[in-house]
Design a protein around this nucleic acid. Sequence first.
DNA 1: AAAACTTTGTCTATCGAGTAAACTAAGTCT
DNA 2: AGACTTAGTTTACTCGATAGACAAAGTTTT
Lengths: 409, 409
Amino acid sequence: MRVTGDQALVKKLNKSIVLDTIRRKGPLSRTDVSERTGLNKATVSNLTFELLEQKLVEETGLGVSSGGRKPLMLLFNGGAGCAIGIELGVTLVKAALTDLKGGILLETSAPLGKHNPDTAFAVICEIVRPLLEAAPEAPHGVVGIGIGVPGMVDESGLILYAPNLGWEGVDLKGRLESEFGVPVVIDNEANAGAAGEREYGAGRHVRHLVYVSAGMGIGSGMIIDGQLYKGAWGYAGETGHMSIESDGRLCSCGSRGCWELYASERAYAYFESQEEEGQISTQESGSRSTEFDKPIDLPSLTTPELTEYARQGHDNTLRMYEEIGRRLGIGITNLVNGFNPEKIVVGGPLTEAKEWIEPAMLAVIAERALPYHRRELAVSFSELGSRSAVLGAAHLAVSQFLGRVRVSL
Amino acid sequence: MRVTGDQALVKKLNKSIVLDTIRRKGPLSRTDVSERTGLNKATVSNLTFELLEQKLVEETGLGVSSGGRKPLMLLFNGGAGCAIGIELGVTLVKAALTDLKGGILLETSAPLGKHNPDTAFAVICEIVRPLLEAAPEAPHGVVGIGIGVPGMVDESGLILYAPNLGWEGVDLKGRLESEFGVPVVIDNEANAGAAGEREYGAGRHVRHLVYVSAGMGIGSGMIIDGQLYKGAWGYAGETGHMSIESDGRLCSCGSRGCWELYASERAYAYFESQEEEGQISTQESGSRSTEFDKPIDLPSLTTPELTEYARQGHDNTLRMYEEIGRRLGIGITNLVNGFNPEKIVVGGPLTEAKEWIEPAMLAVIAERALPYHRRELAVSFSELGSRSAVLGAAHLAVSQFLGRVRVSL
DNA sequence: AAAACTTTGTCTATCGAGTAAACTAAGTCT
DNA sequence: AGACTTAGTTTACTCGATAGACAAAGTTTT
């Protein structure tokens, strides 16, 4: 049964429009809101009254006159509630308590030793509890918990498969909800990051955004028309397993030449060892690859150490990051041509090496993306750094709390 | 200024829901519609009354009783108007006159000799005029013209770039509108094909669909949540230029290893000549490609002839189609992993060779797509054959005429 | 065949949303 | 001080959806 229209829907829609307008463009007077939204002044007044009652909006005093009565300015009240955002990493759990505007009130993290669901759940609880207790008194209290996980999440919120944790079919959302008694939103780490950058970071005011999260693998969060695109069953965005080398190296996923083998931290091992196990041997002559077919001696296999070497001008490391940048650019080009986003935001742990990756990446995109696609395309790195996913997860909870109605004609 | 809610919107929304329900599930009684949509019986009656007045719906007589009064069945009246769908090909212009249900009333085509916009426009006019004249008397007459073109179309309907026609910045939509005085909808050929298959073909009732059109190139039409996804500026779907071979053959687009070089009719020339001009030579040893690095003797370079050879069991041709199938599968896998569609529909001229392409294609997808993505994925070939784009274009016109309002919560 | 029941579809009274326009409030400008 | 401007509220009204009563037209039971 589809969503049908009635007066309640109209009100919900308009109220959400008013709140959203104030939230994004505030401070605004009632008249401003009326003009911006096209709603009648009376309607705005009525809805504003309710929003004031709900403490979601506050009057911050008189504004400057433009030749008549001074306007009463309205502002979104970020303090009306709090949200908790969590990023479940493979080795680290990060969390933050935020207000409804994404302002961080408190931040914590804890290492994740064992990967089994029970241990992880315990660690998460231990980290979340103090945040809940630290939450200030607010009209709406803690409105929800958002969590980004390194794996695929289905529509119901079940973690279907998280290879790096070795999880399959874990109902983390349900367990958290019954533990803490607040609504929990769960999503892929890349989707959370995309939401974060779109709301508070490099993607503000962008309608069509692709966030590429590069770390131990690559995942993408795609925002289409301001909304996370999840695909038919919620698994969209597994772009790390886009093959950019049809007969390339064998990936753990069973496919070959997956993007993340060349453009994520997984590439380190590849440069180092360059075992040929996975490669298909050629029946015929003529090679045409620029891949590093001989091992490169890398002084380390972790990003923090490698960036240190890069900073010191270590030649092989620099060459490697250049190649990673090139491969990142190739995959991003594929996304750009297929999706035609307004903006690409690159985030994740690998962006620590931004400095050495960026030039080749941008050059490849400039060279290879289709002219019209790249003409108005913006490519940038994460603005929230390692906080993208945590803030995005918190925002997912806020967003669910505030509710949103959208109409397209 | 955003779409706000008022009673008119509510009515529009509900009316469109009622019409859509009858169109898709009819014949239905008013009570059926009420139950299916959740709308009140009175509301359905009122809206139905208007739809009857507009001749968009008709009462087809009494249905069977289920223990009480016999229901008056309602049916969408496909005859209330006509639409014209056009596919502008590189060598051929196809067109059809359809009713509002996509039923073909008349079909024509004409060869396209010269490619310049004026000639093409003249040919289109010549082909459309008789269709317009043949249109039967109907309450709404010819409600619109839809046209699918082999190139990129921006939001305003301008053909930005059509490489195979050599066009840049052609306002075909505007010219057709002033010539015929009816609304014109223009879109990419792949988008039109996607709309056709989704509405009348292999993608009925599918919400997330990717249509892959393989001919002289590859283009994709992506339907997300029942709606064509056009990206930020309307250029989404240029998946033919997704690189599946990072350092592969140089493409006319400036990139390398583009999918369509390996999996469309453009691949024929490649197998034949295999000039190395475009290839990057390797600095180092070790090749790892299964590509056909030596030329294959092909007896022809056109699909109709090659399929004939294939039918006769011509070895090289069969090997080539198998390789094309494999490469198609690789690209489709990339789309599946990234998009998580419910269904992939493959269409376009190349599907004439379906028989020899399909096995390898399906095998590759089964082998390489991520397990959860492929589990509920359906892959099939076009049901409308060479009519996908024409019918889809006509449907775009119908769809614009009927209007549609969508609400998401 | 009559009575009781069922199902379909319409009618009626009501609610509650947004709107325009009048109005009040509170400024600015000359 | 008076005219003008702008902000925000009040009032009267319109319109669409709804629940529930009702009418219409069947079927089933007695």
